[in-house]
């Protein structure tokens, strides 16, 4: 789910890399956890295994933010550093 105007913003422009989210390429800051950057792009929820996935604790404890990262399911995006060419997919296409 994305909003036309994101509810979060980056405080400053930093060097970016390219990642792929559900087939769409996006530019996000390098060397930061990927989830806050997605939030700043207006991406705050996606489909999860048995519920909607979304950020909550942002500290790796709540497991609400999981997705498939480079083919590995169950990865917490708040704990996943952005890497050039990384591919992120929802855990279930419809949800």
């Amino acid at each position: 789910m994305t909003h036309p105007t994101p509810y979060y913003r980056r405080l400053a422009a930093t060097p970016e890399i390219e990642i792929v989210l559900d087939g769409t390429s996006l530019r996000v800051p390098a060397d930061a956890p990927v989830l806050p950057s997605l939030m700043a792009l207006g991406i705050e929820a996606w489909s999860g295994r048995n519920r909607q996935a979304q950020p909550l604790c942002l500290m790796g404890a709540c497991f609400q933010c999981t997705a498939v990262v480079d083919g590995r399911p169950g990865q917490r995006l708040c704990r996943t550093p952005a890497r050039q060419g990384m591919s992120i997919g929802s855990e279930q296409a419809d949800g």
Binding site: M1, T5, P6, Y7, Y8, R9, R10, L11, A12, T14, P29, A32, P33, P36, S37, M39, A40, E44, A45, Q52, Q54, P55, L56, C57, L58, M59, C62, C78
Partner: peptide, 25 residues
């Protein structure tokens, strides 16, 4: 509390410290 837009306080702090991302609304 299950709506997007609801996050932890420590989480907001983490976003600021680790990514320089803050709420804009």
């Amino acid at each position: 509390w299950t709506l997007p837009g609801v996050v932890g306080l420590a989480g907001l702090q983490t976003m600021l410290k680790s990514a320089g991302v803050v709420p804009a609304a």
